[in-house]
Design a protein around this nucleic acid. Structure first.
Lengths: 195, 195
DNA sequence: TTGCCATCCGGAACGTTGTTCCGTATCGTC
DNA sequence: GACGATACGGAACAACGTTCCGGATGGCAA
């Protein structure tokens, strides 16, 4: 899945130099295009910006989602790793959960169209969907569980469901100044509390 | 906006018979296509199902949104009219608000892709956006206001913002059995309550 | 009834997307 | 220096929304 070169000893036959260079250039061009036009920037535009043919994109990133995942992998990792850290530092599991959701929302809101793509049933985004869920749902589940055990929130909500709801609420954020996704997510979390 | 023939005495020069017939056929075909494939069923498919050329669709419904609006106008009207009725009947404004949101959610959830289209920034859906907002936001505002005055919910939420949030939460409902939009909307409303 | 013209229809054609495919160029090695 | 594996470029294809215009057709006037 667009592996940038992980564990040694793997049977990876070491790619050609131009291939590695192009992959790097593509990642930068894609990142720039995503900032400028959102995650569904036309493939041709990204290719042009990178000075590369469209075929090259598809060889390195078989689906659009692979490209998106590769571009945002670092930030998703950071978000995933922040979960346990927050749980350890915050003065309550509920605070940790709130803070973590804030992190997630910030991430989504600052990436044009990412939230949309995340919910899209377009086959091209299946990998994206899978990656986010695999990486973040367990983290969310841990936080949710801790908060539930502390008796602060209802315990009948699944992490997957909560994350989808949060992701959905982030759709369209930044396009309309009168819609504040963060506030709406805050409301959702407030609805989760027992009182 | 796809007027089906409203007030008499209007300067409407009475359309030709075949035009009126085709408009009717088109509405039925579109309704069927929307049920089968969602509101973004290919225009060509709708035309074919209606036994009509694509040009005919665009003459009657200049944009995709006009077609969608025409198909669902009755139901949107019904939803809008239910607002004041609920406010009069229910034992509290808060109950009325909850019931009305339920109605709205039911409507969105049963129409494949409607919620998605509603948030899309695609220019083709601008009319749809405008119609829903014009028609439903005032109703929601009235309910919200009544509930706020009764002191049951926070008063710092705009109707527009709430409706967008609810609409967003309905995205993707029915595709994934593990995601229950109604439940999530319930959570959001719970977060609105003062306690 | 007939004829005429405004109105409306059908579908070809255009522009934009994602995606595939293959002849050609390049890299790395022997 | 030559050769095979690898990678590249961009033409080509398919699916979509949308526009456009030659031809058909409905309604009215004579």
């Amino acid at each position: 899945m667009a592996d940038t070169g992980s564990g040694p000893g793997s049977p990876a036959p070491r790619k050609r130099a131009d291939a590695r260079r192009n992959q790097e250039i593509l990642l930068e061009a894609a990142a720039a295009a995503f900032v400028a036009s959102g995650v569904d920037a036309p493939v041709r535009d990204i290719a042009a910006k990178a000075g590369v043919g469209v075929g090259t994109i598809y060889r390195h990133f078989p689906t659009r989602a692979d490209l998106v995942v590769a571009v945002y992998r670092h930030q998703v990792e950071a978000c995933a790793e922040a979960g346990p850290a927050l749980l350890a530092d915050a003065d309550s599991p509920h605070t940790a959960l709130t803070r973590w959701i804030d992190l997630f929302v910030d991430f989504l809101v600052t990436k044009h169209g990412l939230a949309e793509a995340l919910q899209s049933d377009d086959a091209a985004f299946a990998t994206l969907h899978a990656y986010f869920l695999d990486r973040l749902v367990p983290v969310c589940a841990e936080l949710l569980d801790a908060a539930a055990r502390a008796g602060r929130i209802r315990s009948d909500i699944q992490a997957l469901e909560l994350m989808r709801a949060v992701g959905n609420l982030c759709i369209g954020a930044g396009k309309d100044p009168s819609y504040d996704a963060r506030r709406m997510v805050g409301l959702l979390l407030a609805g989760l509390r027992l009182h």
